[in-house]
């Protein structure tokens, strides 16, 4: 049934944005946990652990996010799990975000001079204590601008969850298009909403980065 595109459709699109934000939050949380583990593996003093981290990062960064979504959505059901789009999306995005956040945070950890680790060791601190009291507090400051930058990537990439039927902003746009048959206007509104979410974050990330350069 075709009907006119009206103001209520715009409100529905804005309402669907909360699922985009919810998925972003879940992906960021899951990806943060995975990413922390990956970053620690990558700076570990044991070579096999470093390789494990490197293989994970290269495997995930070398495959499309779409493939992960499909593998989890269609793939896991054959093992007898009933997979909802929520579960598939949460798993796929955690894996994806974990690889990128892990790489970002590894860079920040490694940007802290070796001598800082050694200073900690000479004070009698263990590996975890050095990490906790000396390295992480300094690395955190470096990590914030690129992490906010990646958050923008994450918000944009949640749009791919639409293809497994996860109802968020892009999927809502597809559904609205199907009933109103006004793709140009609808997708323009969808794009505008994404822009309104992402642009302030981009600007914020840039400001943080500039401040960091001034401070150094």
């Amino acid at each position: 049934m075709i009907r006119e595109l009206s103001f209520i459709d715009v409100l529905y699109l804005i309402a669907a944005t909360r699922w985009t934000l919810a998925l972003t939050a879940i992906a960021f949380l899951g990806g943060g946990i995975v990413g922390l583990a990956v970053a620690l593996l990558r700076v570990s003093s044991l070579a096999p652990l470093r390789w494990l981290g490197a293989i994970y990062v290269h495997a995930v960064q070398g495959t499309p996010l779409l493939a992960w979504l499909f593998v989890f959505f269609f793939g896991l059901s054959i093992f007898g799990f009933t997979v909802s789009p929520w579960l598939a999306a949460a798993a796929a995005y955690s894996i994806y975000a974990g690889a990128f956040l892990g790489e970002i945070w590894r860079g920040c950890l490694q940007a802290i001079p070796r001598t800082q680790w050694e200073a900690g060791a000479s004070l009698g601190l263990g590996f975890t204590q050095q990490l906790r009291y000396i390295i992480v507090p300094q690395a955190l400051r470096l990590a914030i601008p690129p992490t906010v930058g990646f958050l923008v990537q994450l918000i944009k990439n949640t749009s791919l969850a639409a293809v497994i039927g996860f109802i968020e902003l892009t999927r809502e746009g597809q559904l609205t298009t199907a009933t109103t048959f006004r793709p140009f206007t609808v997708y323009l509104i969808v794009a505008a909403i994404y822009f309104a979410l992402c642009f302030p974050l981009t600007q914020w990330s840039r400001r943080l980065e500039r401040r960091l350069h001034v401070a150094r």
Binding site: S159, L160, T170, F184, Y187, Y194
Partner: peptide
């Protein structure tokens, strides 16, 4: 372009 998803650009 950098603040909107590729899939929405494709659909547009």
């Amino acid at each position: 372009i950098r603040n909107t998803p590729l899939i929405v650009q494709l659909f547009l």
